[in-house]
Amino acid sequence: MTQTKSLIDENGKRTDGRTETELREIKINVGVIKNADGSAFIEFGMNKILAAVYGPREVHPKHMAQPDRCVLRCRYHMTPFSTDTRKNPAPSRREVEISKVMREALEPALMLQDYPRAAIDVYVEVLQADGGSRCAGITAASVALADAGINMRDIVAACAAGKINGKIVTDINDTEDKEGEADMPVAYMPHLDQVTLLQLDGILDDKQFSECLDEAVRGCKVVYEIQRKALMQKYFGEETEMKEEQ
């Protein structure tokens, strides 16, 4: 990782004008795909990602079915026009990996034993990529799963943190990912206080690692509030305040 330019200017602002702890703007729309059982569209900074959930439905091929639990299948895919130069639409090594880690990040939140012999399919389609698309994908997929009415222990929120110019920052974008020193995507279940995904690309010492993890978890909590608002907006409209009569 060669450092070509300073990623934090003298005012402490990053390349896109954010402060060290600031997240990019996040927008989530729920239920955007009529034919899916659950869906969500997320704009995470410049990332634009669609997530669709189908199921629980019959498993094909049948031999994949588990007698005691549901099969969760995830597909992360980048459209050819999502990047600067055309991306081959065939699944790349990276996409296969992200599909796997995405499945593993969502699985702990789902109560798969409630739907034995069935399958849940999660499709995540990246329409425009700008770094941190796996986190945005997990965030959208989790909202889509809740929209599909699948039993869940908690919502999974995801956010990255990393190190640029020797400083720990939240929500790494594409430039910072490529030119920075470390990138740590984290998926987190806020109510259960459990981490379901932790990857790290780069080198951090002990202190930096825990600082980075804390920062990522803080970011996840911010993301969770947006997820929550989006779901509330879809199902309860203007009455987003928790109504409680005791």
Binding site: R153, I155, H191, Y235, K243
Partner: peptide, 30 residues
């Protein structure tokens, strides 16, 4: 006994504390 009527929830939201009987679509956590 504490009663709750029409509280809007999403997965993971805490509904009530204490020793209540779970009927459906709820999970005991602690």
């Amino acid at each position: 006994m504490q009663e709750i009527r029409r509280k809007y929830v999403i997965p993971g939201d805490r509904i009530i504390e204490g020793n209540h009987r779970p009927l459906f679509n709820v999970l005991r956590a602690g």
